[in-house]
């Protein structure tokens, strides 16, 4: 499947010899080198506390590296306020405002950019539709299941048409069936808009299913231990999980991951 090139919107990410030491002296990342291509879907796996989340926050400009550099979009712009316009972040928790309906939660990023006109309203309806929550637009988060809340969170991330989507273990708290379904939906959304995606997870099968490349990080201080290309073609569907090649690749990544725990 091919995608129409849209060079104006696409974004690559380059981390060069990035190290980050927190004030307490803990070194979270050490000499991390990573490049994510335009429109690539990259997954990152690694032991707990290896700095995966920290790496995502560096890319989003929420943290600054102690040394090294983080470039967004070609090699020109450094991560920060400017580049954040095109970035959306999905957290492990749905992180919805409980006093806002689904509709108004999804609208929030547009409000913060001062962009809620007719077009904004249309876009809100469109993304709510995309995540299959049309009938729930006026519901409040407390009335939704965990999976539905995560769909709202996804819709909110997509409403700004980000060129870079950062996902920090977004489906970790969900049951396996819901997780698989959301994986398929996320992939369909990616196939549609072809944003660049960096997806952090503990789940190897999820990483292989979703991405074009899986990066395995070492235990703290985190650096890239291995990169495993995932050759399966798109669009992918649920049957892929049952194929022997899928099992073999998942096994390979798991083995590498186990080594990283040492």
């Amino acid at each position: 499947m091919s995608f129409p090139p849209d060079s104006a919107r696409q974004t690559s990410v380059t981390l060069e010899q990035v190290s980050l030491r927190f004030d307490r002296g803990v070194e979270a990342l050490h000499d991390l080198n990573l490049r994510v291509g335009d429109g690539e879907f990259l997954s990152v796996v690694g032991p707990s506390g290896c700095g995966k989340s920290t790496m995502l926050r560096l890319v989003a400009g929420l943290l600054r590296p102690t040394s090294g550099s983080v470039h967004i979009g070609g090699d020109t712009k450094l991560a920060g306020r400017q580049t954040r316009r095109d970035i959306s972040f999905v957290f492990q928790q749905p992180t919805l405002l409980p006093w806002r309906s689904v509709e108004k939660n999804v609208r929030l990023p547009l409000e913060l950019r001062g962009r809620v006109g007719d077009e904004g309203r249309r876009r809100v309806a469109e993304v709510i539709d995309l995540v299959g929550l049309r009938d729930f637009a006026r519901f409040y988060p407390a009335q939704l299941s965990g999976g539905m809340q995560m769909r709202v969170s996804l819709a909110r991330a997509l409403v700004t048409r980000p060129s870079l989507l950062i996902l920090d273990e977004p489906f970790a708290a969900l049951d396996d069936i819901t997780r698989q379904r959301l994986n398929e939906e996320l992939l369909a959304l990616w196939g549609r808009d072809r944003f660049t995606a960096i997806f952090v997870t503990h789940n190897v099968s999820e990483a292989v299913f979703l991405s074009q490349r899986v990066v395995v990080m070492s235990a703290r201080p985190g650096r890239v231990l291995a990169e495993v290309p995932v050759p399966f073609s798109f669009p992918r569907n649920a049957e892929l999980r049952a194929e022997p090649d899928f099992a073999r690749l998942t096994g390979d990544v798991s083995r590498t991951l186990r080594e990283s725990f040492r």
Partner: peptide, 8 residues
């Protein structure tokens, strides 16, 4: 962080 990513 959500608000910060959106430059609030």
């Amino acid at each position: 962080e959500l608000f910060e990513v959106n430059n609030a």
